[in-house]
Design a protein around this nucleic acid. Structure first.
Lengths: 276, 276
DNA sequence: TATAAAACAGAATAAATATTCCATTCATGG
DNA sequence: CCATGAATGGAATATTTATTCTGTTTTATA
């Protein structure tokens, strides 16, 4: 049993887990990994189920609980059940009420988009590729100039990125297609291009990304699938799957990812500047 | 025990509950009401706890479970635990993990924006003024031409609205400020203006809305507060409060509201067209 | 390689929890 | 107002689930 006091929140729990899982013996580390991957199940499972999941004996799982600072499994589960209860406000009910009025009434549609946005965000949180995201931030933070391109439904994302960069005094150009000028000559070797495009992919965006790649510029792509036409450009692919409502999507996840990317770049630049 | 088969989803469960709770004896109705109010707790509670909550004996609660079509409490709880697992695709955990790495790491920022977006959406669902929303839809559906205006951080919203209108073959103009032309002469009496602006309010947007109001056009405003400079224009005010992350916001709620508005207008126009 | 300490699996036990049963109370129709 | 059946409360029981214990295996150390 551990001499430390038991975690009382998910934060503390995760912190503790990260802290000690390094030094755990084999079976207990199995438990730690399984728990880290399936935290959500703890509240509603038995020791037997969890230990099978982790591939260990129930007794091993018990030792794990004790190492984490709890007196046993029950106490640990209690914590998870309590924190779970807080999570549900009456949001679900509100949504029901919005929906209640009819199929294509404004409020029903709003409810759909709100729920789609929420699902997309939750999905984003669990599927985003952190490695690639960090790499993209590094690349962008070092770029002498950032080119942002995205048309049609990707355009709002592109314009918001530009706004964010501008606000943080980061050199960036939004390629907005005004005047049908050929924008590629503005891109110099070493510049970085952020290309945003969703199926059906717009040709201008693909062309610009391909050109950038040809002249040796790095491309960061925000798209709705890992494959797709951006593959060829060796882009750092950030994929987002948005939940559709009919023929439209709310862009919540995409915009969140974009703004997080932009702000991260800003933060990184500050750090580099102070580092010098 | 009921002769009917047991519900296998939350929907079925709720339906059944509504159906039979009318005709239940006193104690069992207490159970029904408590369960309806605390659906979320079932997965993580014991019969004893729930029956105390409902103010009945455990045996009464058992009878309730059987009336609902389950063999007993365990089976009912099983259903809730299973649907819970889907609803909770360890989103909370992932978010924790994202956050765990550090304060301004990309993943931590992303987690912040995702959470901010989620909160904003939930907030939107419970605070939006449905009356005004429906009125706005009516007005826009009848407009010969829709003008969309919004600059700086409102511009992504404005551009997405235009995209949606275009896709639905609805006549709309995006006033994007290119060329610094004075756009007001494009607005005719009877046209409707959608003005999007957040504090600090951009002068161009306010001016355009004021002009539109002067010539007798209706204004629909999407903004972050009910008061603010749009008040004077007699606008239909749709207010959205977004949760900020530092100096930025993810726009999730605003965009969701905007797209719901646009699609509603599209649906309404279809209805009017078929009606004729 | 020998030895001690730690980790482990599996079975045995303890505790918690669900479920049933039955005596009592309450409501309903004659 | 009584008789009958439904509804109820509470305790007894059955079942599930957590926890501990012990002999064995693995691992680290000298």
């Amino acid at each position: 049993m551990s001499d430390q006091t038991a975690p009382v929140s998910l934060e503390e729990f995760n912190h503790r887990l990260a802290e000690i899982s390094e030094t755990m013996p084999k079976r207990l580390r199995q438990c730690a990994e399984f728990v880290a991957q399936n935290t959500d199940r703890i509240a509603v499972s038995t020791v037997a189920e969890l230990s099978i999941g982790a591939g260990v004996q129930p007794s091993a799982f018990m030792r794990f609980c004790q190492l984490m600072g709890f007196s046993g499994f029950s106490e640990m589960q209690k914590m998870f059940r309590e924190t779970y209860a807080q999570k549900w406000p009456d949001y679900a009910t509100r949504l029901e009420n919005l929906r209640a009025t009819g199929d294509d009434s404004p409020s029903a549609l709003l409810a759909e988009f709100v729920e789609a946005g929420r699902l997309s965000l939750e999905n984003l949180a669990s599927t985003v590729d952190l490695k690639t995201l960090e790499k993209a931030v590094d690349v962008l933070a070092a770029a002498p100039m950032i080119h942002v391109v995205g048309f049609r439904r990707a355009f709002p994302v592109a314009s918001y990125l530009s706004y964010a960069f501008e606000k943080m005094d980061i050199a960036a150009v939004l390629h907005d297609g005004v005047g049908n000028l050929n924008p590629r000559h503005a891109i110099r070797t070493g510049d970085v291009v952020i290309a945003i495009t969703f199926a059906p992919y717009s040709q201008e965006t693909i062309d610009l990304a391909a050109y950038a790649h040809d002249i040796g510029s790095q491309v960061v792509a925000i798209s709705d699938a890992l494959s797709g036409p951006m593959r060829k450009t060796d882009a750092l692919m950030l994929s987002v799957s948005e939940v559709d409502v009919g023929a439209f999507r709310a862009l919540s996840a995409t915009i969140s990812l974009a703004i997080a990317l932009a702000v991260s770049v800003g933060a990184k630049r500050d750090k580099l500047a102070y580092g010098k």
